[in-house]
Amino acid sequence: MGRYLLRRLVLFVPVWLGVATLVFLLVRMSGDPVLAMVGDKASPERVAELREKLGLDRPLPAQYASFLGELATGDLGESYRTQRPVLEDLRDYFPATLELTLLAMLFATAGGMALGIAAAVRRNGWVDSASMVTALVGVSVPVFWLALLALKGLGESAGLFPVGGRLSATTDLRPLTGLFTLDALLRGDPAAFADAFGHLVLPACVLATVPAAIVTRMTRAALIESLGKDYVRTARAKGLRERTVVVRHALRNSLIPILTVVGMHFGLLLGGAVLTETVFGWPGLGKYTVDSVLRRDFRSVQGALLLMATTFVVVNLLVDLLYGFLDPRVREGYEEGR
């Protein structure tokens, strides 16, 4: 197990280097960042001066070398748009995305699995049809439209949820981890917790729709397959309760594909959800990255993309480790494959 983990981590280095190189090249192919930075009123001398200051007048290999050098020391440079270190920006915006993703994936996994199990157990019944239609709608509806609808209906008209941002304007919360619900608890401030949680619910629900729909379909398919297996027939023949048969025997063996889907979406959502973040005014990584791309704030783009790649790889690794936890055969495989 330890060796497996080590090997995965070592493999991560070339992957990460590849991503860094790709990001470096893509950012430099996307046009002149200096013009976007200085604005309309700058003189050509200012432009040249800034280009020199940023090292953009140097040959590409030299830029690449210093880029890698800075990365090695953990320096992501300074954002020209927000005028502060990229690392600080990421420290602010990544927790927002993480918090939203965690709740959204919780909703998606719980809701999706419940619907999927119900559909599989009552296959071809009305529950099945209803949940499959729900799932189809879930993947098909445009997210920004659903988001606006949720805001209008539940936020404005029904007045159930606050609209915009992570906290109400008048709530002051000094962040610790950047996960505001957790911070509110750590600071012992129940009002701030309620406020932060209230702001989370709608965007998390909206963000959960697509993964929930996919989890539903995956759960249904995997469970139906398991329920047709011999060991299920044996379990039933032993006289076990149907619930035990489904949950302990069939579902447990269907978890691997479900986990794969959940892990994949978790990784994707950690890269930020631009549309959801924009509509809900959620200051997350997705909006930050897109704004940085539009302003050609290349240091922020580099930093954000590297962070996304890293989280994606880490989540994948965690999923792989969970496979071993769920399935002893995989665990054995770790040992054999050394």
């Binding site: 606006l148 936020g155 404005e156 915009g164 304007a169 008048t170 005014g281 200051p283």
Partner: peptide, 21 residues
């Protein structure tokens, strides 16, 4: 005076109507 950011024009108006700003 509190300045806050809501990028989408529609959502910002919704926030104004609902009294969040």
């Amino acid at each position: 005076v509190i300045f806050r950011t809501i990028p989408d024009n529609n959502s910002r108006l919704t926030a104004l109507r609902s009294g969040d700003c």
